[in-house]
Computed example of a mutant assay.
Amino acid sequence: MNDHTTNKHKNNSPIEGVIFDWAGTIVDFGSFAPTSIFVEAFKQGFDFEITLDEAREPMGIGKWDHIKAVGQLPSVKARWIAQFGQEMSHDDIDRIYAAFMPLQKAKVADHAQPILNAVDVVESLKAQGIKIGSCSGYPREVMDVLSPVAADYGYKPDCIVATDDLPQGGRPAPFMALKNVIELGIGSVAHCVKVDDAAPGIEEGHNAGMWTVGLLLSGNEAGLTYDEYLNADADTLEQARERARVKLGKAKPHYLIDTIAELPEVIRDIEARLQANQRP
């Protein structure tokens, strides 16, 4: 679902493209669609309990690899061995993934509403002639459910890459970001910005040679619902911000902001740096 006809404006910016993650970045404040489904898939597949925090821990990578990574968390591994007498196997992961997929497809549209000012920010980038790419830890069959609902809300990126579209694997490898570059006809990766709410997605941007922006409060690491975010006092927000800053800081993003609403200011700063011949 790549639409290169939507971007008819002359590019008035040195930035050629911005590539967004999906859950926790553009849609699904708090990234609850994948985390809650992981909890349910473990329960449905094996009657095994994991917490939301455990489900969140490896967020950003492809979903099969995510299930494997959850199984390797020391807390989960110990309980799994206690319950089943051995570590989680590839067959076990396949079984949980098989439970995950229909659950995710059934629920993902419920979490398709764009975050805060996301659509306005994206449309203002398009108006400058900047191309809008996107990539996700979701596989294609989930993206095929999510993207038309998000489009109904007004979010229509020029390119959508799913984690299983490429044989080389997902994040933190650069391939999904680079597939956007190729599909969108972008001339320089140094004139691209990758925006994500999880460390593997920021690392993906670095590995692709792009500017990177991490989102602290709308995504997986803060784990706040939209209502919690709106109603939180300053101390609660700062604690959530610090939790996310610790996790995202390990990926060394060029910029850390609370939500996509603050992205225009970052874009202006990157434009100035590019005009001064700086590179990511």
Rank of each mutant, 00 (worst) to 15 (best):
Q239M: 10
A99W: 01
W211C: 06
V149T: 13
E203V: 09
F29V: 10
V108K: 02
Q72R: 14
K126G: 03
K63M: 07
L216V: 07
I96F: 05
F38V: 06
I81E: 14
I186W: 10
I202G: 00
L125S: 07
F42I: 10
A222T: 01
R171D: 05
Y255Q: 08
A106C: 07
M88S: 06
K8I: 13
I186H: 05
A127K: 14
G133F: 07
N11G: 06
D91S: 12
L52Y: 13
Y255I: 04
H254C: 01
I270M: 03
F100W: 13
D235F: 02
N12T: 15
G24D: 04
E242Q: 15
S134N: 11
L216C: 10
M88C: 09
N231I: 07
N11T: 10
Q113R: 14
L103N: 08
F20H: 04
E262N: 09
W211F: 12
N231C: 09
F84W: 05
K68E: 13
D92N: 12
G214R: 03
N117R: 14
S13F: 05
V161H: 02
A276R: 12
D144A: 14
G62A: 15
Q83V: 00
I186R: 01
E221V: 06
G201L: 09
I61S: 03
S147Q: 14
F29D: 11
L146F: 08
V266E: 06
Y255L: 04
K126V: 12
N220D: 12
E228N: 02
Y138T: 04
R56C: 01
K250T: 13
W22Y: 07
E228V: 02
A173I: 05
D152K: 14
Q278M: 11
H9D: 12
A173Q: 11
Q275S: 12
I19G: 04
K250L: 12
F29R: 02
L248T: 03
L184N: 09
S31L: 11
E221M: 11
E183W: 02
I81W: 02
Y255F: 15
L224P: 01
V122M: 10
